[in-house]
């Protein structure tokens, strides 16, 4: 999962301090793996260097970093590009897709469209495997079937998520 893009997406909903960002990330996406502060600050300095965020203000106080970050126009474009571009189908994609769906809902983008594009990307790969299976021997067929069943499982998750978008939207933006 792209931590940089996820933090950028969270920033699109409003400027935040580094520690706020970490808390927001952990609450929404860090169930299994909360972010380390170090990851947040190294990511933010990279985003800053690339002009995707800017420092809106620095407060005096406790903690290692009191910078308040805001997303730039270039940052918004970058989030948009990442959300619209379907992921390459591979195992355990659901955490990235889940993150993208939640960020799309948070930032008022077309989450259903994002899922449609991802379904197409999966189907494109499934067509290639089906074609290979059609022209291949039994070994090819079995190998392709294995991949096809995994992709199908991803798609079933995707359909279920698509069916629950309204419900998820209410949770994400009460």
């Amino acid at each position: 999962m792209s931590i940089g893009h996820t933090l950028l997406g969270l920033l699109e909903t409003g400027p935040r301090h580094g520690y706020d960002l970490k808390r927001a990330f952990d609450a929404r996406f860090g169930q299994d793996r909360p972010l380390h502060y170090g990851q947040v600050y190294s990511t933010m300095s990279r985003l800053l260097k690339n002009g995707l965020v800017e420092v809106e203000g620095i407060e005096q106080g406790e903690g290692p970093d009191r910078k308040r970050y805001a997303i730039t126009d270039a940052g918004i474009t970058d989030v948009e590009r990442w959300l619209v571009q379907p992921e390459k189908p591979e195992p355990y994609l659901q955490s990235t897709l889940y993150t993208k769906v939640v960020l799309a809902l948070l930032t008022g983008r077309d989450a259903a469209g994002l899922l449609d594009a991802q379904r197409s990307e999966h189907l494109r790969l499934m067509r290639g495997l089906t074609e290979r299976k059609r022209s291949g021997d039994l070994a090819d067929q079995l190998i392709c079937d294995h991949a096809l069943f995994h992709l199908e499982a991803d798609l079933r998750w995707l359909e279920l998520t698509a069916a629950r978008l309204d419900q998820l939207g209410k949770t994400v933006r009460p």
Binding site: L123, M126, T130
Partner: peptide
């Protein structure tokens, strides 16, 4: 999806 994979487009 496995059936749709026999199509040219969806």
């Amino acid at each position: 999806a496995r059936v749709a994979a026999y199509s040219d487009r969806e």
